[in-house]
């Protein structure tokens, strides 16, 4: 059974935050999902390789040729806030710690 503290830890890894009420709801739901997942323990997988993709290609190469890219103004079109051609973000260091 997953605990509320573990769920809070996973949330911090995932860069998510939840209200206390939501944290309880997610704990219950994750517990239920993990219960379902525990069925997998019934399957013997000794010496079975892991499948991570089904097309079985590796090291797909292509010629390393420079090609024209979109202009910077176009690339920055969806940036929430910018200064000139730079992406503007809040201070990395917390202002409240100043």
């Amino acid at each position: 059974m997953i605990s509320k503290d573990s769920v809070a830890h996973v949330a911090s890894l995932a860069k998510l935050q939840f209200s206390e009420a939501d944290l309880e709801k997610y704990t219950d739901q994750l517990a239920e999902i993990l219960d379902m997942v525990e069925q997998l323990e019934q399957v013997s997988t000794k010496d079975v390789p892991v499948t991570t993709q089904s097309i079985h290609l590796e090291n797909v190469m292509r010629p390393d040729v420079a090609k024209p890219a979109e202009p910077v103004t176009e690339l920055l079109k969806n940036v929430p806030t910018k200064k000139g051609t730079l992406i503007q973000v809040p201070a990395i260091i917390d202002k409240e710690d100043d």
Binding site: L40, V43, T45, V48, P49, V50, T51, T52, S54
Partner: peptide, 10 residues
């Protein structure tokens, strides 16, 4: 474990 079960399903 899920990746191994994926192999068995395949």
């Amino acid at each position: 474990k899920a990746g191994q079960v994926r192999t068995l399903i395949t």
